[in-house]
Nucleic acid binder design. Structure first.
Lengths: 205, 205, 205, 205
DNA sequence: CATGAATGAGTCTTCATTCAT
DNA sequence: GATGAATGAAGACTCATTCAT
């Protein structure tokens, strides 16, 4: 289970580099940060940085990719846990909120990489990231709506994939409000604040 | 009303510069475009560029800002035209779709800058754009929901501002689907495809 | 005939750059010279250097190529002038000596490149230079021997091309002696000092 | 006679390092090869390389120097063997041809360094190599001509040292032809193909 | 004693900006 | 006022060398 000391050390270094890089990338943006700066922040020599990442872009992509994987995993777990579809969605909204709150700075990077498109994380993302995100949307989130409709928990008001897109964009939108002005727009404790927009009809009886 | 010839000429030049700059920014992104390239594209001397914009950043900010203003204006107009609230929303969804379709490349630039917090190419740019965007959301789009509720066209399922955010994020999400794969995800001709997600309740009777 | 002032100025700058570059290349060799150094020596800004030559290699290749062309031209002229074949060869030896003496430093650069084959600083350079050199040997110098034999001025002791190679290598060898120790090995005033090695038989009657 | 095991082992390692270094130097040239590469090729750790050679330059010089010594030795032996001067020269031409053919890649390295004067990769190297080369020319090769003249085998058409230089440059020239295009210019089986240029007179009876 | 991870000075090159014409 | 040649600071990246293990 335990890795050899050498390996552990390597992993620790890698982590420190990524952490340092994240810090400065967030502060100044990809293009305004020099490798010098990253090296200084992470307290390694430049050459050492290049031992771990083959270039600046590689370092950056790694950063965003690992993050995105962690998020997908956490959200997938949140959805899989409960049995009931409504509960799955509530759990999803809750988990996403916690994830954001626990990783504010990473989130900024994540969305920044998506060219800042708040509504849709897909835009401009590196193809690898978008692929995994797509898979999550279609295979995981959409299927919740699909099975919900099949089991008569939901009415079939739209295509399940579209509903998945809708929920994703709604949560993102509210999380962005919070991200940019936490005091003015606290992320709702009660997931239904968001879900009601989907659950209840605006028009009609 | 008519500006002196000198002034008119200046304005025309400014426009050409911005147009040239937009072309190359879109093609390659802010950091991968040089002022030489912009000058060449717009067919002006570099020095002349600097007569109109104090530096590269200024040129870029101007570009994005003017674009964003145009969008806000078009959407505001779309909302103001019809009387009925439901019709206003339909018009909004339609107009936004047309706007996107007519300005695909501009859109990318617009969203690249309007979100992503401090991690943007130019940190300062965000605030101005977001301010105007916020104003549109709160003063214009939210008020449609508010008056809709007041006039019993809508049920009060959520805070009007939240509904505005929701609609904005929904339209964006669908437009991005279309943006990234137009054949697989055509932007719905019928605005209700999107609006139904808001209009109809997923859960309940 | 006279170029516009702008153009003349450009040419002068180019020349100065090449001269500066030659100086430092000779002193330290291609790889041990930085563009900073060349720029400093030529008294231009680095950026200006890059306006004229697209990179370090281009600057270097230009230097060597222009030189080699100049030499080929001068030697061709030297051979063409007299009528008599023996006189042609004498003129060639004389001209080559003068050329060397007037361009010591350039010569060093030339031989650094035209020898050593693919192990050279820039393998690609060779081929262009060698091609032109080959053409000179085969088309120009060899034909002197050939016509000399035809016109009974020379005995047919070897293939004309081989004789051309021989004469070239002989002159080079003596010039190298002089290059490395001018006092100990002055380049012979009298071309026959060299030519006699070809003209007179070492063995025989 | 037999060295202690330790010493023998050391010598074997040194040899392997030099062999590995030669391989990569030949393939890419001095400046395009890193110590890491040499270490990898020779299958030693970098640190171990530095135990044997104090730096990259030292390693390189050693390589070229040992090679050049081997050549001088072989050529000296070739000249010493026969009794007759003409035969000595024939043997020299033959031996040099064999030496080249057996060490094509080494040759490239040798000439890259033994010519081009100060414009070399390593200016300092020249002098040592040229010194030994000069010694060979003056003490060994020239004396063949000198004794040949003394013993009436040769006519005194030029200074013995000059004749040595001439023969050396002639063989080099033909070997270079062969080096660069072995099919088009095969190195002559019969040494007289080259020697006739010296032996027979181009002009005269 | 061998090792090879870590170092950081030094390289080429780009490009925003200035200013003499 | 327009021009664009000249500038040189700054950036990504390499690699010879050291030294702790």
């Amino acid at each position: 289970m335990k890795l050899p000391r050498r390996e552990r050390e390597k992993l620790r270094q890698r982590k420190e580099m990524l952490a340092g890089a994240l810090d400065v990338f967030l502060e100044k943006g990809y293009h305004n940060v020099s490798m010098q700066e990253i090296a200084a922040k992470a307290e390694f020599a430049i050459g050492t940085l290049y031992k771990f990442f083959k270039n600046k872009e590689d370092l950056y992509k790694t950063l965003v990719l690992e993050m995105s994987d962690g998020f997908n995993e956490a959200l997938t777990k949140a959805i899989e846990e409960p049995d009931d579809e409504v509960e799955k969605l509530r759990n999803y909204v809750r988990a996403k909120g916690e994830l954001f709150r626990a990783n504010v700075s990473m989130i900024r990077l994540y969305f920044a990489e998506s060219r800042g498109a708040s509504f849709n994380v897909m835009a401009g993302l590196d193809s690898v990231i978008r692929e995994r995100y797509d898979h999550f949307m279609q295979a995981t989130l959409a299927s919740v709506f699909e099975s919900g409709v099949r089991r008569k928990r939901f009415k079939k008001i739209a295509d399940p994939y579209h509903l998945a897109i809708a929920l994703d964009s709604l949560t993102n939108a509210f999380l962005f409000l919070w991200l940019n002005a936490p005091e003015r727009h606290p992320y709702p404790e009660d997931p239904d604040t968001i879900l009601d927009i989907l659950f209840k009809g605006l028009v009609g009886p």
